[in-house]
């Protein structure tokens, strides 16, 4: 564990707390893409199938937290505050993302096993999971401040992971090409969003 990775994970936690706080305080999930949240839940469930494999207490607790909160957010959006969700704003076709990521995972993976292919699928899917949310923002034209904070925390989390990989490459000879390429694309998507947002 290094500074970049720890800070990145904490930013990731913070992004989820910001989202939960926004929904609970305003009792509304307006401006939030259900499709993006659904994709994140799929990402966590398919990636953490290795939950029984022990790495550290930190690792296990974080995995449980991500799976639980992502499903809880789906519940809030689809059940508790269902009336505040407007599907007509959330029109990105996620079938294509899911299909393309599954296909890529079947072709480009470290080993062709059930758990490994789904792990790879989750890496590819996380890279593009924010697209429905960005698409929604570009349609509605503006984001609530809180939604911007949510996206900022997520973007910081991704940017810090890049620094973490550079750090790990030099300090422990760590390399993970699949994660690096997907992570670079994911960070680029956020950078593009911030660039557009900053210029506005």
């Amino acid at each position: 564990m290094n500074f970049f990775r720890l800070t990145a994970d904490l930013m990731h936690l913070m992004s989820i707390f910001v989202l939960l706080l926004k929904i609970q305080k305003t009792r509304s999930c307006s401006g939030i893409s259900f499709k993006t949240q659904l994709l994140y839940a799929v990402v966590f469930v398919t990636r953490y199938l290795d939950l029984p494999k022990w790495i550290s207490l930190y690792n296990t607790l974080m995995k449980i937290f991500f799976i639980a909160t992502s499903i809880y957010i789906l519940y809030l959006m689809k059940v508790k505050f269902r009336a505040t969700y407007d599907p007509s704003q959330d029109t990105f076709r996620i079938e294509f993302l899911l299909g393309a990521c599954l296909l890529l995972a079947l072709v480009f993976n470290y080993s062709f096993s059930f758990i490994e292919v789904l792990w790879t699928f989750s890496i590819y899917l996380e890279a593009v999971a924010i697209l429905p949310q960005l698409f929604m923002l570009s349609r509605t034209g503006e984001a609530e401040t809180i939604t911007t904070h949510y996206l900022f925390a997520l973007g910081a989390y991704r940017g810090l992971y890049l620094l973490n990989w550079i750090w790990r490459f030099y300090t422990e000879n760590y390399a993970d090409l699949i994660v690096w390429i997907a992570g670079a694309i994911q960070t680029a998507l956020y950078s593009d969003f911030f660039y557009i947002y900053y210029k506005k």
Binding site: D50, W119, N164
Partner: peptide, 10 residues
């Protein structure tokens, strides 16, 4: 050697 297979990140 690629030790990325350990999947120790989140």
């Amino acid at each position: 050697h690629n030790n990325g297979h350990k999947h120790d990140e989140l």
